[in-house]
Design a binder for these strands. Structure first.
Length: 416
RNA sequence: GGAGGCGUCGCCUAGUCUGGUCUAUGGCGCCGCACUGCUAAUGCGGUUUGGGGUUUACCCCCCAUCGAGGGUUCAAAUCCCUCCGCCUCCGCCA
Protein backbone atom coordinates (compact mmCIF):
# COMPACT_ATOMS: atom_id res chain seq x y z
CA UNK A 1 0.00 0.00 0.00
CA UNK A 2 2.72 2.42 0.95
CA UNK A 3 4.64 1.87 -2.27
CA UNK A 4 1.69 2.64 -4.48
CA UNK A 5 0.75 5.63 -2.34
CA UNK A 6 4.17 7.06 -3.12
CA UNK A 7 3.33 6.95 -6.78
CA UNK A 8 0.87 9.70 -5.94
CA UNK A 9 3.46 11.82 -4.13
CA UNK A 10 1.63 13.80 -1.47
CA UNK A 11 -0.27 10.91 0.06
CA UNK A 12 2.38 9.56 2.43
CA UNK A 13 2.24 12.59 4.75
CA UNK A 14 -1.52 12.41 4.64
CA UNK A 15 -1.50 8.80 5.78
CA UNK A 16 0.77 9.67 8.73
CA UNK A 17 -1.49 12.53 9.80
CA UNK A 18 -4.45 10.22 9.46
CA UNK A 19 -2.92 7.53 11.66
CA UNK A 20 -2.09 10.04 14.36
CA UNK A 21 -5.55 11.60 14.32
CA UNK A 22 -7.10 8.15 14.53
CA UNK A 23 -4.93 7.31 17.55
CA UNK A 24 -6.18 10.43 19.29
CA UNK A 25 -9.72 9.52 18.42
CA UNK A 26 -9.25 6.07 19.85
CA UNK A 27 -7.74 7.17 23.17
CA UNK A 28 -10.35 9.85 23.83
CA UNK A 29 -13.03 7.35 22.97
CA UNK A 30 -11.66 4.90 25.54
CA UNK A 31 -11.63 7.62 28.21
CA UNK A 32 -15.21 8.53 27.35
CA UNK A 33 -16.33 4.91 27.64
CA UNK A 34 -14.74 4.52 31.08
CA UNK A 35 -16.23 7.72 32.49
CA UNK A 36 -19.62 6.91 31.07
CA UNK A 37 -19.57 3.41 32.57
CA UNK A 38 -18.95 4.84 36.03
CA UNK A 39 -21.63 7.46 35.54
CA UNK A 40 -24.13 4.79 34.59
CA UNK A 41 -23.27 2.72 37.65
CA UNK A 42 -23.90 5.62 39.99
CA UNK A 43 -27.02 6.59 38.12
CA UNK A 44 -28.60 3.28 39.02
CA UNK A 45 -28.01 3.87 42.72
CA UNK A 46 -29.42 7.38 42.93
CA UNK A 47 -33.16 6.63 42.75
CA UNK A 48 -32.91 4.35 45.78
CA UNK A 49 -30.43 6.29 47.88
CA UNK A 50 -31.55 8.48 50.77
CA UNK A 51 -30.31 11.51 52.67
CA UNK A 52 -26.61 12.14 52.94
CA UNK A 53 -25.67 9.13 50.80
CA UNK A 54 -27.82 10.50 48.01
CA UNK A 55 -26.25 13.94 48.26
CA UNK A 56 -22.80 12.40 47.97
CA UNK A 57 -23.82 10.40 44.88
CA UNK A 58 -25.29 13.46 43.22
CA UNK A 59 -22.12 15.41 43.88
CA UNK A 60 -19.86 12.71 42.45
CA UNK A 61 -22.00 12.09 39.38
CA UNK A 62 -22.15 15.83 38.78
CA UNK A 63 -18.37 15.86 38.52
CA UNK A 64 -18.49 12.91 36.18
CA UNK A 65 -21.03 14.66 34.02
CA UNK A 66 -18.61 17.50 33.30
CA UNK A 67 -15.75 15.08 32.60
CA UNK A 68 -17.91 13.05 30.26
CA UNK A 69 -18.83 16.15 28.27
CA UNK A 70 -15.16 17.11 27.93
CA UNK A 71 -14.18 13.61 26.80
CA UNK A 72 -17.09 13.54 24.37
CA UNK A 73 -16.02 16.83 22.82
CA UNK A 74 -12.42 15.62 22.44
CA UNK A 75 -13.68 12.45 20.85
CA UNK A 76 -15.88 14.32 18.38
CA UNK A 77 -13.09 16.65 17.38
CA UNK A 78 -10.60 13.85 16.75
CA UNK A 79 -13.20 11.86 14.82
CA UNK A 80 -14.04 14.86 12.65
CA UNK A 81 -10.38 15.42 11.88
CA UNK A 82 -9.90 11.75 11.05
CA UNK A 83 -12.88 11.83 8.74
CA UNK A 84 -11.71 15.01 7.02
CA UNK A 85 -8.28 13.53 6.38
CA UNK A 86 -9.80 10.28 5.20
CA UNK A 87 -11.89 12.09 2.61
CA UNK A 88 -8.78 13.75 1.20
CA UNK A 89 -7.08 10.42 0.65
CA UNK A 90 -7.23 9.18 -2.94
CA UNK A 91 -7.71 5.53 -3.75
CA UNK A 92 -4.73 3.21 -3.75
CA UNK A 93 -3.49 2.67 -7.28
CA UNK A 94 -3.39 -0.87 -8.65
CA UNK A 95 0.26 -2.04 -8.84
CA UNK A 96 0.04 -2.85 -12.57
CA UNK A 97 -1.06 0.66 -13.55
CA UNK A 98 1.54 2.45 -15.67
CA UNK A 99 3.18 5.28 -13.72
CA UNK A 100 3.05 8.77 -15.16
CA UNK A 101 0.74 11.38 -16.62
CA UNK A 102 -1.82 11.63 -19.37
CA UNK A 103 0.57 10.50 -22.12
CA UNK A 104 2.03 7.55 -20.23
CA UNK A 105 -0.86 5.16 -20.79
CA UNK A 106 -0.22 1.60 -21.91
CA UNK A 107 -1.82 0.61 -25.21
CA UNK A 108 -3.66 -2.67 -24.65
CA UNK A 109 -5.14 -3.33 -28.06
CA UNK A 110 -6.43 -1.80 -31.27
CA UNK A 111 -9.73 -2.99 -32.76
CA UNK A 112 -10.79 -2.33 -36.34
CA UNK A 113 -9.02 -0.22 -38.91
CA UNK A 114 -9.49 3.53 -39.33
CA UNK A 115 -11.30 4.17 -42.58
CA UNK A 116 -9.07 5.37 -45.44
CA UNK A 117 -10.97 8.21 -47.08
CA UNK A 118 -8.01 8.96 -49.36
CA UNK A 119 -8.40 5.56 -50.98
CA UNK A 120 -12.14 6.13 -51.36
CA UNK A 121 -11.46 9.39 -53.11
CA UNK A 122 -13.26 11.96 -50.99
CA UNK A 123 -12.47 14.33 -48.19
CA UNK A 124 -14.40 13.46 -45.01
CA UNK A 125 -16.60 16.17 -43.53
CA UNK A 126 -16.38 16.76 -39.82
CA UNK A 127 -19.35 16.00 -37.57
CA UNK A 128 -20.51 19.61 -37.37
CA UNK A 129 -20.67 19.90 -41.14
CA UNK A 130 -22.45 16.55 -41.35
CA UNK A 131 -24.78 17.64 -38.56
CA UNK A 132 -25.64 20.76 -40.56
CA UNK A 133 -26.24 18.84 -43.79
CA UNK A 134 -28.39 16.24 -42.05
CA UNK A 135 -30.24 18.81 -39.98
CA UNK A 136 -29.05 16.92 -36.92
CA UNK A 137 -26.94 19.29 -34.83
CA UNK A 138 -27.37 23.02 -34.14
CA UNK A 139 -24.63 24.62 -32.07
CA UNK A 140 -25.16 28.17 -33.31
CA UNK A 141 -28.59 28.55 -31.83
CA UNK A 142 -27.45 26.67 -28.71
CA UNK A 143 -24.78 29.35 -28.27
CA UNK A 144 -27.46 32.01 -28.58
CA UNK A 145 -29.64 30.36 -25.97
CA UNK A 146 -27.13 28.82 -23.55
CA UNK A 147 -23.63 29.84 -24.58
CA UNK A 148 -20.64 27.89 -25.76
CA UNK A 149 -20.33 24.15 -25.31
CA UNK A 150 -24.06 23.55 -25.68
CA UNK A 151 -25.91 21.98 -28.59
CA UNK A 152 -29.34 21.12 -29.89
CA UNK A 153 -29.94 17.74 -31.46
CA UNK A 154 -32.57 18.27 -34.11
CA UNK A 155 -34.54 15.97 -36.41
CA UNK A 156 -32.55 12.82 -37.13
CA UNK A 157 -29.98 13.98 -34.57
CA UNK A 158 -32.59 13.74 -31.85
CA UNK A 159 -33.78 10.40 -33.22
CA UNK A 160 -30.20 9.18 -33.31
CA UNK A 161 -29.74 9.88 -29.62
CA UNK A 162 -32.94 8.08 -28.74
CA UNK A 163 -31.87 5.13 -30.89
CA UNK A 164 -28.45 5.00 -29.25
CA UNK A 165 -29.94 5.13 -25.80
CA UNK A 166 -32.47 2.43 -26.57
CA UNK A 167 -29.89 0.16 -28.14
CA UNK A 168 -27.47 0.68 -25.25
CA UNK A 169 -30.13 -0.01 -22.65
CA UNK A 170 -31.16 -3.11 -24.61
CA UNK A 171 -27.60 -4.43 -24.62
CA UNK A 172 -27.18 -3.71 -20.93
CA UNK A 173 -30.50 -5.29 -20.04
CA UNK A 174 -29.59 -8.41 -22.02
CA UNK A 175 -26.36 -8.57 -20.02
CA UNK A 176 -28.32 -8.55 -16.77
CA UNK A 177 -28.20 -4.88 -15.84
CA UNK A 178 -31.25 -3.26 -14.26
CA UNK A 179 -32.15 -0.13 -16.22
CA UNK A 180 -32.34 3.01 -14.08
CA UNK A 181 -33.41 6.60 -14.67
CA UNK A 182 -31.67 8.58 -11.98
CA UNK A 183 -31.74 12.04 -10.39
CA UNK A 184 -29.43 14.69 -11.81
CA UNK A 185 -29.33 16.76 -8.61
CA UNK A 186 -27.76 15.27 -5.50
CA UNK A 187 -26.89 16.22 -1.96
CA UNK A 188 -23.24 16.84 -1.01
CA UNK A 189 -22.70 13.44 0.57
CA UNK A 190 -23.40 11.55 -2.64
CA UNK A 191 -20.94 13.72 -4.51
CA UNK A 192 -18.30 13.50 -1.82
CA UNK A 193 -18.75 9.77 -1.33
CA UNK A 194 -18.12 9.02 -4.98
CA UNK A 195 -14.95 11.09 -4.94
CA UNK A 196 -15.99 14.08 -7.04
CA UNK A 197 -15.50 16.85 -4.48
CA UNK A 198 -11.74 16.61 -4.11
CA UNK A 199 -9.49 17.34 -7.04
CA UNK A 200 -12.48 17.21 -9.41
CA UNK A 201 -14.57 19.81 -7.56
CA UNK A 202 -13.71 22.58 -10.00
CA UNK A 203 -15.48 20.70 -12.74
CA UNK A 204 -18.76 20.35 -10.87
CA UNK A 205 -21.84 22.57 -11.01
CA UNK A 206 -23.24 23.54 -7.63
CA UNK A 207 -26.57 25.15 -6.73
CA UNK A 208 -25.68 27.15 -3.67
CA UNK A 209 -29.18 28.28 -2.86
CA UNK A 210 -30.41 24.71 -2.46
CA UNK A 211 -27.14 22.93 -1.63
CA UNK A 212 -27.44 20.62 -4.62
CA UNK A 213 -24.77 19.38 -6.97
CA UNK A 214 -25.46 18.56 -10.60
CA UNK A 215 -24.09 15.13 -11.35
CA UNK A 216 -21.39 14.77 -13.98
CA UNK A 217 -22.38 11.13 -14.44
CA UNK A 218 -25.03 8.75 -13.14
CA UNK A 219 -22.15 6.91 -11.47
CA UNK A 220 -22.86 9.28 -8.57
CA UNK A 221 -26.50 8.34 -8.14
CA UNK A 222 -25.90 4.65 -8.81
CA UNK A 223 -23.09 4.46 -6.24
CA UNK A 224 -25.15 6.34 -3.66
CA UNK A 225 -28.23 4.25 -4.43
CA UNK A 226 -27.25 1.69 -1.78
CA UNK A 227 -25.69 4.23 0.60
CA UNK A 228 -25.83 3.09 4.25
CA UNK A 229 -27.06 -0.34 3.27
CA UNK A 230 -25.80 -3.84 3.97
CA UNK A 231 -26.23 -6.23 1.06
CA UNK A 232 -26.30 -10.00 1.46
CA UNK A 233 -23.41 -11.58 -0.43
CA UNK A 234 -25.68 -13.90 -2.38
CA UNK A 235 -27.36 -10.90 -4.02
CA UNK A 236 -24.07 -9.82 -5.60
CA UNK A 237 -23.18 -8.79 -8.17
CA UNK A 238 -25.74 -6.00 -8.46
CA UNK A 239 -25.61 -4.38 -11.88
CA UNK A 240 -27.36 -1.16 -12.89
CA UNK A 241 -27.50 0.67 -16.19
CA UNK A 242 -28.19 4.33 -15.47
CA UNK A 243 -29.35 6.91 -17.96
CA UNK A 244 -29.14 10.56 -17.03
CA UNK A 245 -28.06 13.98 -18.16
CA UNK A 246 -24.48 14.79 -17.17
CA UNK A 247 -23.23 18.28 -16.33
CA UNK A 248 -19.62 19.39 -16.49
CA UNK A 249 -18.17 22.86 -16.05
CA UNK A 250 -15.09 22.02 -18.13
CA UNK A 251 -13.33 24.66 -16.05
CA UNK A 252 -9.85 23.42 -16.80
CA UNK A 253 -10.28 22.94 -20.52
CA UNK A 254 -10.56 26.46 -21.95
CA UNK A 255 -9.70 26.39 -25.60
CA UNK A 256 -9.80 22.59 -25.88
CA UNK A 257 -12.27 21.02 -28.31
CA UNK A 258 -14.17 24.26 -28.74
CA UNK A 259 -15.52 23.17 -32.10
CA UNK A 260 -18.32 20.65 -32.21
CA UNK A 261 -19.85 18.49 -29.54
CA UNK A 262 -16.83 16.55 -28.31
CA UNK A 263 -16.65 18.52 -25.08
CA UNK A 264 -19.91 20.03 -23.82
CA UNK A 265 -21.44 21.24 -20.57
CA UNK A 266 -24.45 18.96 -20.74
CA UNK A 267 -24.97 15.59 -22.35
CA UNK A 268 -26.79 12.33 -21.84
CA UNK A 269 -25.09 9.07 -21.00
CA UNK A 270 -25.86 5.42 -20.40
CA UNK A 271 -23.61 4.19 -17.63
CA UNK A 272 -22.98 0.69 -16.31
CA UNK A 273 -22.44 0.28 -12.59
CA UNK A 274 -21.57 -2.86 -10.59
CA UNK A 275 -21.47 -3.72 -6.93
CA UNK A 276 -19.34 -6.83 -6.39
CA UNK A 277 -17.35 -8.77 -3.82
CA UNK A 278 -13.86 -7.17 -3.75
CA UNK A 279 -12.41 -10.55 -4.71
CA UNK A 280 -14.39 -10.36 -7.96
CA UNK A 281 -13.58 -6.72 -8.77
CA UNK A 282 -10.82 -7.30 -11.30
CA UNK A 283 -12.87 -9.89 -13.15
CA UNK A 284 -15.84 -7.52 -13.22
CA UNK A 285 -13.61 -4.77 -14.54
CA UNK A 286 -12.66 -7.03 -17.44
CA UNK A 287 -16.35 -7.78 -18.05
CA UNK A 288 -17.24 -4.09 -18.12
CA UNK A 289 -14.49 -3.49 -20.65
CA UNK A 290 -15.83 -6.36 -22.75
CA UNK A 291 -19.32 -4.89 -22.75
CA UNK A 292 -17.91 -1.53 -23.87
CA UNK A 293 -15.95 -3.19 -26.68
CA UNK A 294 -19.02 -5.16 -27.73
CA UNK A 295 -20.93 -1.87 -27.98
CA UNK A 296 -18.28 0.02 -29.94
CA UNK A 297 -17.79 -2.92 -32.28
CA UNK A 298 -21.53 -3.16 -32.89
CA UNK A 299 -21.48 0.51 -33.94
CA UNK A 300 -18.77 -0.32 -36.47
CA UNK A 301 -16.20 2.02 -34.94
CA UNK A 302 -12.43 1.62 -35.01
CA UNK A 303 -10.99 2.03 -31.53
CA UNK A 304 -8.14 1.26 -29.21
CA UNK A 305 -8.06 0.35 -25.53
CA UNK A 306 -5.62 1.98 -23.12
CA UNK A 307 -4.61 1.34 -19.51
CA UNK A 308 -4.72 4.86 -18.07
CA UNK A 309 -1.57 6.01 -16.23
CA UNK A 310 -1.54 6.67 -12.47
CA UNK A 311 -1.44 10.46 -12.71
CA UNK A 312 -4.56 10.54 -14.88
CA UNK A 313 -6.76 8.32 -12.74
CA UNK A 314 -8.89 10.61 -10.62
CA UNK A 315 -9.41 10.15 -6.91
CA UNK A 316 -11.68 7.14 -6.83
CA UNK A 317 -10.20 4.76 -9.40
CA UNK A 318 -7.62 2.11 -8.62
CA UNK A 319 -7.42 1.31 -12.30
CA UNK A 320 -9.05 2.70 -15.43
CA UNK A 321 -9.34 1.53 -19.03
CA UNK A 322 -10.43 3.95 -21.73
CA UNK A 323 -11.78 3.01 -25.14
CA UNK A 324 -10.85 5.62 -27.71
CA UNK A 325 -12.58 5.72 -31.08
CA UNK A 326 -10.95 6.91 -34.27
CA UNK A 327 -12.21 10.35 -35.31
CA UNK A 328 -11.41 10.69 -39.03
CA UNK A 329 -11.27 14.49 -39.32
CA UNK A 330 -9.08 14.76 -36.23
CA UNK A 331 -6.81 11.94 -37.34
CA UNK A 332 -6.64 10.55 -33.84
CA UNK A 333 -8.32 8.38 -31.26
CA UNK A 334 -10.62 10.14 -28.79
CA UNK A 335 -12.07 8.81 -25.53
CA UNK A 336 -15.56 7.42 -25.95
CA UNK A 337 -15.87 5.17 -22.94
CA UNK A 338 -14.06 4.72 -19.68
CA UNK A 339 -14.31 2.01 -17.06
CA UNK A 340 -12.96 2.31 -13.53
CA UNK A 341 -12.40 -0.17 -10.76
CA UNK A 342 -12.94 1.86 -7.60
CA UNK A 343 -12.32 -1.04 -5.26
CA UNK A 344 -13.70 -0.34 -1.79
CA UNK A 345 -13.03 3.40 -2.03
CA UNK A 346 -16.57 4.57 -2.76
CA UNK A 347 -18.19 1.85 -0.67
CA UNK A 348 -16.30 2.97 2.44
CA UNK A 349 -17.19 6.61 1.95
CA UNK A 350 -20.83 5.86 1.24
CA UNK A 351 -21.04 3.04 3.79
CA UNK A 352 -22.21 0.39 1.38
CA UNK A 353 -21.38 -2.99 2.82
CA UNK A 354 -21.85 -6.65 2.08
CA UNK A 355 -22.46 -9.45 4.54
CA UNK A 356 -21.20 -12.97 4.00
CA UNK A 357 -19.94 -15.92 6.04
CA UNK A 358 -22.03 -18.40 7.95
CA UNK A 359 -24.13 -18.05 11.09
CA UNK A 360 -22.43 -16.06 13.81
CA UNK A 361 -19.34 -15.36 11.72
CA UNK A 362 -21.38 -13.06 9.53
CA UNK A 363 -19.82 -9.65 9.40
CA UNK A 364 -20.44 -6.56 7.30
CA UNK A 365 -17.54 -5.29 5.23
CA UNK A 366 -17.18 -2.87 2.33
CA UNK A 367 -17.81 -4.23 -1.14
CA UNK A 368 -16.28 -3.04 -4.40
CA UNK A 369 -17.83 -0.68 -6.93
CA UNK A 370 -17.03 -0.36 -10.62
CA UNK A 371 -18.38 1.81 -13.35
CA UNK A 372 -18.12 1.94 -17.11
CA UNK A 373 -19.52 4.14 -19.84
CA UNK A 374 -21.74 2.33 -22.25
CA UNK A 375 -22.78 5.28 -24.39
CA UNK A 376 -21.85 8.92 -23.90
CA UNK A 377 -24.20 10.30 -26.54
CA UNK A 378 -22.51 13.33 -28.18
CA UNK A 379 -19.11 11.73 -28.66
CA UNK A 380 -20.71 8.57 -29.96
CA UNK A 381 -22.67 10.63 -32.46
CA UNK A 382 -19.45 12.35 -33.53
CA UNK A 383 -17.74 9.02 -34.14
CA UNK A 384 -20.71 7.50 -35.97
CA UNK A 385 -21.33 10.46 -38.26
CA UNK A 386 -17.70 10.85 -39.22
CA UNK A 387 -16.96 7.16 -39.55
CA UNK A 388 -20.02 6.14 -41.54
CA UNK A 389 -20.36 9.18 -43.80
CA UNK A 390 -20.58 8.84 -47.54
CA UNK A 391 -19.38 11.10 -50.33
CA UNK A 392 -22.78 12.78 -50.75
CA UNK A 393 -22.99 13.72 -47.08
CA UNK A 394 -25.35 10.93 -46.12
CA UNK A 395 -24.51 8.63 -43.23
CA UNK A 396 -24.98 4.86 -43.07
CA UNK A 397 -26.81 3.70 -39.97
CA UNK A 398 -25.12 0.86 -38.06
CA UNK A 399 -27.31 -2.20 -38.11
CA UNK A 400 -27.71 -2.31 -34.35
CA UNK A 401 -29.46 1.08 -34.42
CA UNK A 402 -31.81 0.45 -37.34
CA UNK A 403 -34.59 -1.17 -35.29
CA UNK A 404 -34.69 2.00 -33.21
CA UNK A 405 -34.78 4.29 -36.25
CA UNK A 406 -37.79 2.77 -37.90
CA UNK A 407 -35.61 0.51 -40.03
CA UNK A 408 -33.79 3.45 -41.60
CA UNK A 409 -30.48 2.40 -43.17
CA UNK A 410 -29.18 5.80 -44.24
CA UNK A 411 -29.51 9.31 -42.85
CA UNK A 412 -30.11 11.52 -45.89
CA UNK A 413 -29.00 15.15 -46.27
CA UNK A 414 -31.69 17.79 -45.98
CA UNK A 415 -29.42 20.69 -46.90
CA UNK A 416 -26.31 21.37 -48.96
C1' G B 1 -45.76 28.23 0.18
C1' G B 2 -49.65 27.16 4.51
C1' A B 3 -51.89 23.61 8.34
C1' G B 4 -51.67 18.99 10.76
C1' G B 5 -49.91 13.90 11.76
C1' C B 6 -45.91 10.49 12.01
C1' G B 7 -40.47 8.52 12.37
C1' U B 8 -38.55 2.67 18.08
C1' C B 9 -32.46 -2.62 16.87
C1' G B 10 -35.13 -6.87 8.98
C1' C B 11 -40.98 -5.97 8.99
C1' C B 12 -45.07 -4.70 12.32
C1' U B 13 -45.47 -2.97 17.26
C1' A B 14 -45.50 -1.54 23.21
C1' G B 15 -43.22 2.38 25.74
C1' U B 16 -43.26 9.07 25.15
C1' C B 17 -48.52 12.65 28.50
C1' U B 18 -46.41 11.36 34.38
C1' G B 19 -37.54 11.38 32.91
C1' G B 20 -34.51 6.73 36.76
C1' U B 21 -35.30 -1.65 37.65
C1' C B 22 -35.90 0.39 29.52
C1' U B 23 -30.37 -3.99 30.33
C1' A B 24 -36.36 -0.98 24.81
C1' U B 25 -42.13 -4.99 24.93
C1' G B 26 -44.67 -8.45 21.99
C1' G B 27 -45.66 -10.70 17.18
C1' C B 28 -43.80 -12.06 12.27
C1' G B 29 -39.63 -13.41 9.51
C1' C B 30 -34.80 -15.46 9.75
C1' C B 31 -30.62 -18.60 12.04
C1' G B 32 -29.12 -22.69 15.36
C1' C B 33 -30.37 -26.88 18.40
C1' A B 34 -33.90 -30.61 20.09
C1' C B 35 -37.95 -33.69 18.76
C1' U B 36 -39.79 -35.85 14.27
C1' G B 37 -40.46 -41.38 8.00
C1' C B 38 -40.08 -36.22 4.96
C1' U B 39 -42.51 -31.64 5.36
C1' A B 40 -45.31 -29.25 8.84
C1' A B 41 -46.17 -28.41 13.88
C1' U B 42 -43.94 -27.85 18.72
C1' G B 43 -40.08 -26.56 22.39
C1' C B 44 -35.51 -24.02 23.70
C1' G B 45 -31.87 -20.47 22.38
C1' G B 46 -30.33 -16.60 19.14
C1' U B 47 -31.29 -12.46 15.70
C1' U B 48 -29.45 -3.65 14.95
C1' U B 49 -25.14 -1.38 13.63
C1' G B 50 -20.51 0.95 14.87
C1' G B 51 -16.18 1.59 18.15
C1' G B 52 -12.99 -0.54 21.92
C1' G B 53 -10.97 -4.53 25.28
C1' U B 54 -9.71 -9.78 25.53
C1' U B 55 -8.67 -14.15 22.51
C1' U B 56 -4.84 -18.57 17.94
C1' A B 57 -9.94 -18.92 17.38
C1' C B 58 -14.60 -19.39 19.93
C1' C B 59 -16.65 -17.08 24.05
C1' C B 60 -17.08 -12.96 26.93
C1' C B 61 -16.84 -7.71 28.61
C1' C B 62 -17.34 -2.14 28.00
C1' C B 63 -19.29 2.21 25.27
C1' A B 64 -22.47 4.39 21.72
C1' U B 65 -26.94 3.72 18.75
C1' C B 66 -35.00 4.68 19.54
C1' G B 67 -34.71 9.67 11.89
C1' A B 68 -30.07 13.45 12.48
C1' G B 69 -27.86 17.23 15.44
C1' G B 70 -27.98 20.43 19.62
C1' G B 71 -30.03 21.72 24.63
C1' U B 72 -32.11 20.97 29.81
C1' U B 73 -30.80 17.37 33.83
C1' C B 74 -26.93 13.84 38.38
C1' A B 75 -29.88 10.97 34.65
C1' A B 76 -33.46 11.52 28.12
C1' A B 77 -36.72 6.72 23.48
C1' U B 78 -39.41 10.01 27.13
C1' C B 79 -38.89 17.28 28.17
C1' C B 80 -37.15 21.72 24.82
C1' C B 81 -34.94 23.64 20.03
C1' U B 82 -33.21 23.08 14.91
C1' C B 83 -32.96 20.10 10.70
C1' C B 84 -34.22 15.77 7.54
C1' G B 85 -37.71 12.22 5.69
C1' C B 86 -42.70 10.18 5.01
C1' C B 87 -48.18 10.80 5.06
C1' U B 88 -52.93 13.85 4.86
C1' C B 89 -55.38 18.44 3.60
C1' C B 90 -55.06 23.48 1.26
C1' G B 91 -52.57 26.69 -2.39
C1' C B 92 -49.59 26.81 -6.87
C1' C B 93 -47.81 24.17 -11.10
C1' A B 94 -45.32 20.84 -16.10
Amino acid sequence: MRASQRARGEDVDLVDALLSADERRRSSSTRFDELRAEQKQLGKLIPRAQGEEKQELLRRTGELSAAVKAADAAQDEAAAETQALLLRLANVVHPDVPVGGEDDFALLETVGTPRDFGAEGFEPRDHLELGRILGAIDTERAAKVSGSRFYYLTGVGALLELALVNAAIAQATAAGFTPMLTPALVKPRAMEGTGFLGQAAEDVYYLERDDFYLVGTSEVTLAAYHMDEIIEADRLPLRYAGFSPCFRREAGSHGKDTRGIIRVHQFDKVEMFSYVDPADAEAEHARLLDWEKQWLSALGLAYRVIDVASGDLGASAARKYDCEAWIPTQGKYRELTSTSNCGEFQARRLSVRMRDGQGQKKAARPLATLNGTLCAVPRTIVAILETHQQADGSVAVPEVLRPYLGGREVLEPVAK
